[in-house]
Design a protein around this nucleic acid. Sequence first.
DNA 1: CTCATATATTTAACATGTTAACTTGTAAAG
DNA 2: CTTTACAAGTTAACATGTTAAATATATGAG
Lengths: 147, 147
Amino acid sequence: MKARAKKLVPYRNSLAGALLAAREAVMAPIRPMLAEAGVTEQQWRVLRVLNDLGPVELGMLANSALLFGPSVTRILKEMVQRGLVIRQPNPKDGRGAIVALSASGRALIEETASHTLQQLNHYTRSFGDRRLKKLISELQALIAAIK
Amino acid sequence: MKARAKKLVPYRNSLAGALLAAREAVMAPIRPMLAEAGVTEQQWRVLRVLNDLGPVELGMLANSALLFGPSVTRILKEMVQRGLVIRQPNPKDGRGAIVALSASGRALIEETASHTLQQLNHYTRSFGDRRLKKLISELQALIAAIK
DNA sequence: CTCATATATTTAACATGTTAACTTGTAAAG
DNA sequence: CTTTACAAGTTAACATGTTAAATATATGAG
């Protein structure tokens, strides 16, 4: 018998391992689409969150897009230059800033979403629409349970 | 009437967003434990996979630990120096190498797992043992479905 | 055997993740 | 007011992610 730590299951069967593997499997076909549109996965998250929330402060953006503050600073620097987002000082707070989608950022979302949603359709056909919705709600329930 | 393209849901309700958020929530309490043991999350994945599989080639290790080849090269360089793993040329293939756990690597796993498994217990108590197992198997089914 | 092609790993280059320290502005006692 | 504590972003430093190119060896066709 091979000496193996007693209760550890194989990594792919672990919670963290399954989550990471699933995320990788889901994103693998989507990343090329984002590359086609000229955005990284993180830039895409920023665009989506701005699309969800409208103009927001950087801290809120970072939390919502699951990014760190320094990453947001860096990522926004380029996105502002490319004209995808607009950044303005926060009139309510001299320390902070407000970021919002530009028209061209919005256009990029529209165009790219048409491709990624097609891929999502493929997932729902393979896995089941209801089943996929259930999986997502269970993930959210897990997050709520362990917080 | 033609089927209309579905709209983008809020990022946290998307499949990729829920997977990323769940992974982050699960790992947040575990990362400090790994830091305590002196390993990064990626080094921990390497140790776990070696524990699962025994001595393996680098390519297999990279795939199993969900790492890229260059990352494995870099990570192993330090782990070999620290004596956590042992690296030897592959007698069957002059290009490759074989990596295996050292005794101290195995000891680190044993000790750290006792902490991480305790945290996992907390998850199962909050979320339900059966429910958690079901979630993991659904994640694996999703991976299989979209491959 | 020799050439062409494929595979395993490394190196290099740059983007992002991650933590800590720093800067500036806000808020609240006193 | 002024002092002190806190909060928002940035900068800096280093590890890892990620792709492409380079190196070395293996394999198969002729």
